[in-house]
């Protein structure tokens, strides 16, 4: 399998990457970890003319702590996040999610920024950034801006990023108590249902991936939560539930409730 021909540019700064994106529009693709993009290009499902590799851009692959936040550079690999003591201690739910993500080799290459920008509806990160109320830092021709996780995912493989914008970092509020649970599709190991619950005193924030073509905050669950798992009944309220070979709408809805219940009862 061989991708269609393309030009490769290794960007050395965010502004260079952004300018290239702006210049080439739909013909360009950002290459981060490449774990989703490169297979798609090999199958010629995706055929960019310009591939802009952002891996070498300085300052995009650090994990930093500032007061009540942990800031993760977009180019941090899943392995970096998995091995970070700081993440383990301060945003443990993120650590939990990364343990279920891909495999050793994919985690060694794939990045958090790449995964978020790709917006696979069955990816793990979306549930976590939603439940954590993380802020996604992006930069484009118009400069930098911050997009709340709740505004970021807009559909299948679709985000709030403008065509000239790239994800530069993700800011996670520290989370004392959270749980990520995943029920995976047996072939791809992507989530059929991925549930992230952040507990905050008597309240919860619940992010769900895999269930709908857009990962979502289960606000109906959050509103109904009274300290036990009963609110899980509302896991798919108002949601258009996906259906595929492994899980039809009925089963997927049921699984969502089961996984939310289990997470709430942690």
């Amino acid at each position: 399998m061989i991708p269609a021909k393309f030009d490769y540019i290794k960007a050395t700064s965010i502004s260079e990457a952004v300018n290239l994106l702006d210049e080439h529009g739909f013909d360009a693709k950002i290459l981060s970890g490449g774990q989703s993009l490169l297979p798609a290009m090999k199958l010629r499902l995706n055929r960019p003319e310009i591939v802009i590799d952002i891996n070498g851009i300085p300052g995009m692959n650090s994990i930093e702590e500032t007061g009540d936040e942990v800031i993760i550079g977009a180019n941090c690999t899943h392995t970096q996040i998995l091995n970070s003591d700081m993440v383990y201690k301060t945003v443990n739910i993120l650590h939990q999610a990364v343990t279920t993500l891909g495999d050793v080799q994919v985690r060694n290459r794939g990045t958090i920024g790449g995964s978020l920008a790709h917006a696979d509806p069955s990816a793990d990160y979306p549930a976590v950034v939603l439940a954590c109320n993380a802020q996604i830092e992006v930069e484009g021709k118009g400069g930098k801006r911050t997009i709340a996780a709740t505004d970021f995912f807009q559909g299948i493989f679709t985000t709030a990023l403008e065509d000239d914008e790239i994800v530069t970092a993700v800011r996670f509020p520290k989370v004392a108590h959270g749980k990520y649970l995943k029920f995976y599709q047996s072939a791809s190991r992507f989530a059929i249902v991925g549930v992230a619950v952040v507990f905050d005193d008597s309240k919860v924030k619940v992010g769900i991936t895999g269930v709908s073509d857009t990962p979502y905050r289960a606000t109906a669950v959050e509103e109904a939560y009274t300290g036990n798992g009963d609110a899980a009944e509302h896991a798919v309220d108002g949601i258009e539930v996906m259906s595929d070979h492994f899980a039809d709408e009925n089963y997927r809805s049921h699984l969502a409730k089961v996984m939310v219940k289990r997470a709430l009862e942690e």
Binding site: K10, G34, L38, D53, V104
Partner: peptide, 12 residues
């Protein structure tokens, strides 16, 4: 680090 070399470009 272990990586799948089919999913890394040689230029990378």
């Amino acid at each position: 680090n272990a990586v799948k070399s089919c999913t890394v470009l040689a230029v990378q």
